[in-house]
């Protein structure tokens, strides 16, 4: 797109962070881990806002039962690889976004390559085992990890910055074993939008990040509250200590 049409495209948001901010969005590189309900909301809003590069990772194919919440997909996508369908939808919205569609399982082996060259990690996962792997990778590479998760009408979100905030393990130390729970698109939209908001603020240097706070969303009651969270020096993943910030256990 020409400079003129780019300005026109983003004219309603440039007042929020200037053309400089828009350029930062264009130059930003995001790892979006998971292309489900959260990933759909995150991908659509970051693409609409003009984030330049989105590496979207998921190993699943689109199923009928995904369509109540995963707004990246259409009925015609059923049976297709999610990340390929996602790339199509993202490009239909904004062809200037460089989409790296990776159909791969996120595990200890693959995560190293997946986080290479990105500015931040956005959480669109549906399980804590994978989230702990991303948390660890973020700590190792000193990459911010925006955590979000949903359950029914409830959700939580926080921005985790290595050396600045607690890590995921500090606040949720063990995998919560849930049965497969109910899930609805509007909650994914609420939490995914907050994650995308955090990414945009981080990239453009706008506003106050949701750091050292955990926002708990209660869609059933129309209530949200952000509570203080602090690091645990005893945390097995970051071992972060305010008094000795350089004594972290993870490799520097």
């Amino acid at each position: 797109m020409s400079a003129e049409s780019l300005d026109a495209r983003y004219q309603r948001q440039i007042p929020l962070f200037g053309k400089e901010g828009q350029k930062k969005l264009k130059n930003a590189r995001i790892l979006l881990a998971g292309a489900g309900g959260l990933g759909s909301a995150i991908a659509m809003y970051l693409a609409a806002a003009g984030v330049g590069y989105i590496r979207i990772v998921d190993e699943d194919v689109v199923e009928t039962s995904n369509l109540n919440r995963q707004i990246l997909y259409r009925e015609t996508d059923i049976g297709s690889c999610k990340v390929e369908a996602a790339e199509k939808t993202i490009h239909a919205l904004n062809r200037d976004v460089d989409v790296d569609a990776v159909c791969r399982h996120i595990n200890e082996k693959s995560v190293g390559n997946l986080v290479q060259g990105v500015d931040m990690i956005l959480d669109g996962m549906d399980n804590f085992a994978a989230r702990y792997i991303l948390n660890r990778a973020g700590l190792d590479e000193k990459i911010p990890f925006i955590h979000g998760a949903v359950n029914g009408f409830y959700g939580q979100v926080t921005t985790l910055i290595p050396g600045v905030t607690p890590c995921l393990r500090c606040i949720i130390p063990t995998t919560p074993t849930w049965e497969k729970n109910a899930i609805i698109g509007v909650t994914c939209g609420a939490i995914g939008s907050i994650e995308a908001t955090e990414a945009i603020k981080y990239i453009t240097g706008t506003g106050e990040l949701l750091k050292n706070r955990l926002l708990l969303w209660d869609g059933l009651r129309g209530e949200s509250e952000s509570i203080q969270i602090v690091n645990s020096p005893e945390c097995t993943d970051c071992g972060f200590s305010e008094s000795e910030p350089d004594a972290r256990r993870f490799p520097v």
Partner: peptide
């Protein structure tokens, strides 16, 4: 604070 973390995505 008492919370059961959401885990879905």
């Amino acid at each position: 604070a008492l919370f059961p973390p959401a885990a879905g995505g």
